[in-house]
Design a protein around this nucleic acid. Structure first.
Length: 242
DNA sequence: AAGCGCGTCAACCGCGGTTTT
DNA sequence: CAAAACCGCGGTTGACGCGCT
């Protein structure tokens, strides 16, 4: 009933007013999340259930953070995107206070444009490579694409790839720190599963600092209370430490 | 000062999966 | 078991603000 498209049902569209926000907040505080299609009926709001849910989840829900993503959050986004692709809601679960919409917007803003600008050069390089590669190497290249895609997005600014002996390493530099610290993000696409991360290994709300510890791969890194980045992780080949 | 382009973000849309009837 | 209703997700759009020319 209350879920259909605004055009079909004659629902109000566009930006929400403070009065509408108030009505929706009161409803959720009373009834709890869910039953979105009943909101219009119970509150008099002329908004579809879908619209109400979106407004609550992305804007009104308590505990939402505002403002730019922190360096660590950005690192997590890059890392998890390399892992799961455009599964924004899944990624958002590991960033308390951030919404899938926010992360999606962040990604599009900061990385899609870079993808575009580097596309020309990428194409040239690909052409040259294709001429040289054996079929076996091409297959291997395909498998690496998911990893490198995220990496290539981050080829300018404070996030970048550096070449190391026998592999590539993603680095994020933080000029605001006393001396640049590098947060290296591991590429463990082949070894990690979503389930592995569901055990609360990500602790972004600890006042003493942040930490990520992945036992099955040995990957871990963190931020301590002094904002110093520490940890060690597996790179494409071999081990590295920060 | 005006026009333009770009970045950001809130909101909409379509679709697929899940739950309810 | 099937259909309808509901929910959530990812892609896309449009409004707005800001800086540059």
């Amino acid at each position: 009933m209350g879920w259909g498209s605004p055009v079909q049902q004659g629902w109000t569209k566009g930006p929400w007013t403070p009065e509408e926000d108030k009505l929706l907040s009161e409803y959720v505080n009373l009834q709890g999340e869910g039953r979105w299609s009943s909101v219009a009926k119970c509150t008099g709001l002329n908004r579809s259930g879908k619209s109400c849910r979106l407004r609550w989840v992305n804007y009104l829900r308590p505990g939402l953070k505002r403002g730019q993503l922190t360096p660590l959050e950005r690192g997590v986004v890059i890392e998890l995107h390399a892992l799961w692709g455009n599964r924004w809601s899944t990624i958002a679960r590991y960033l308390p206070g951030r919404t899938d919409n926010e992360i999606k917007n962040y990604w599009r803003t900061h990385f899609k444009k870079k993808e575009k600008s580097s596309k020309k050069q990428e194409n040239r390089e690909t052409q040259i490579l294709e001429q040289k590669q054996s079929p076996q190497r091409q297959e291997q290249q395909l498998q690496e694409d998911d990893t490198n895609r995220a990496i290539s997005y981050a080829d300018t600014g404070d996030e970048q790839m550096i070449e190391t002996q026998g592999g590539m390493e993603m680095c994020i530099t933080y000029p605001t720190l006393e001396q640049d610290q590098r947060l290296a993000v591991a590429s463990w696409l082949d070894t990690i599963r979503e389930d592995d991360l569901c055990g609360g290994l990500w602790n972004l709300e600890d006042p003493k600092g942040y930490s990520i510890d992945h036992q099955s791969t040995g990957f871990s890194y963190g931020v301590d209370s002094n904002n110093l980045y520490t940890g060690e992780c597996i790179f494409m080949e071999g081990w590295g430490s920060i």
